[in-house]
Computed example of a mutant assay.
Amino acid sequence: MEWLIAPFEVSFVQRALWGGVLVSVICALAGTWVVVRGMAFLGEAMAHGMLPGVAVASLAGGNLMLGGALSAAAMACGVTVLGRSRRFAQDTAIGLLFVAMLAAGVIIVSYSGSFAVDLTSILFGDVLAVRSQDLLQLGVALALAAVVCAAGHRAFVALSVDRRTATALGLRPRVAHGALLLLLTLAIVSSLHVVGTLLVVGLLVAPPAAAMFWADRLPLVMVGAALLGSAATVIGLLVSWHAGTAAGATIALVAVALFGLSALFSVLLSRLRPRRDAARAVSPEPLPERTP
Results as ranks from 00 to 15, higher is better:
I5N: 01
A6G: 04
E9G: 10
V10E: 00
V10R: 06
S11D: 09
R15I: 11
L17W: 02
G19H: 06
V25I: 12
I26E: 01
A30F: 00
T32G: 11
T32P: 09
G38N: 02
A40P: 12
L42K: 02
L42G: 09
G43L: 04
A45D: 05
A47M: 07
G53C: 02
V56M: 13
S58T: 05
A60R: 13
G62C: 09
L66A: 15
G67M: 04
A72K: 00
T80V: 07
S85R: 14
A89I: 00
D91M: 01
A93V: 03
L97K: 06
F98W: 14
F98E: 05
A100Y: 05
M101R: 08
I107H: 10
Y111V: 11
F115T: 10
F124L: 15
F124W: 12
L128G: 04
L135A: 09
G139C: 07
A145P: 04
V147W: 06
G152Y: 12
A158Y: 01
V161E: 07
V161S: 08
D162I: 07
A168R: 11
L171R: 13
L184E: 02
T185R: 00
L186K: 03
S191R: 08
L192N: 01
V195Q: 05
G196S: 14
G196L: 11
T197G: 12
V201D: 12
L203V: 07
A209K: 00
M212A: 08
M212R: 08
W214N: 00
A225W: 01
L228G: 00
I235W: 02
G236M: 05
S240E: 02
W241Y: 15
W241R: 07
A243G: 04
A243C: 08
A246R: 13
G248P: 06
L253R: 09
L253A: 15
F259R: 14
G260E: 13
L261M: 12
L261D: 00
A263P: 06
F265G: 01
V267G: 09
L269D: 14
D277E: 11
A278I: 09
S283C: 13
P288G: 06
E289G: 12
